[in-house]
Amino acid sequence: MLSNATVWALVVLLQSSIVPRGSRSEVFNQILQVFLWLGTAVGVVVIAYMCWKAYKYRASGGHVDESAVDRPDLGELPQGSGGGRKLFVSFSMSAIIVVSLIAWTYGTLLFVEESPSVEETGGDELVIEVVGSQFMWTFVYPNGHESRTLRAPVDREVKLRVTSADVFHNFGVPGLRVKTDAIPGQQTDTWFRAEETGTHTAHCYELCGSGHSYMDAEVRIMEQQAYEEWYSNTTPSNATATPSGDGASDHGRLRLPTGVNA
């Protein structure tokens, strides 16, 4: 139901620099800043206005000419007082702010949802599978190597394909602003690009049982060179490396989703 004008406006937004792009951290921080400033401003204005009016029209304030005001009457059929226009103006203003803010972020959503293009990934896509299980994360590399630590090269798009071997988990690395649900029998995709080398911690963000508080993993962002070196020395993990009892058989062999919005 989008009119042409709206589509056009969206295209302009997408192509212009108004829409935040870059790494996920940059995008998130830019948008959050704008929301925080605007949200605070709106909140302060509205609450201040409300307190001011409440103070001004306090019972002992004497700001109202009582003979000119029509007070409610016990037992009357409920009715309203006028003021519809003022109400509508304020409502429209708030609607414009909210809708434009969300439309603005929608451009970024489209950007975030796009899979990294070939130019961006340098031809070979790096896809790492992430498997959640009570209460640990297992990372499976393209060559079948499994690890408890997520190693990834700096300055390169890394695609994560996330699922769970038992219950509903949620994989998130706050330092990289990447997060997605880990659902048994389903696969969710997300990506990140780290700008600096260093270490981050991944957490589980969905209650998954008694060990939920400690379901963390180390994320190590390495120089590209170092990563390649490390990667070339890895070998496919065989079935004897059982990470987690029962669920282990699923590791490395992801149970792919069977048709629901994959």
Partner: peptide, 10 residues
């Protein structure tokens, strides 16, 4: 804002 929600989730 879905992009923010992605990070606020959980």
């Amino acid at each position: 804002a879905v992009v923010l929600d992605y990070e606020f989730r959980g």
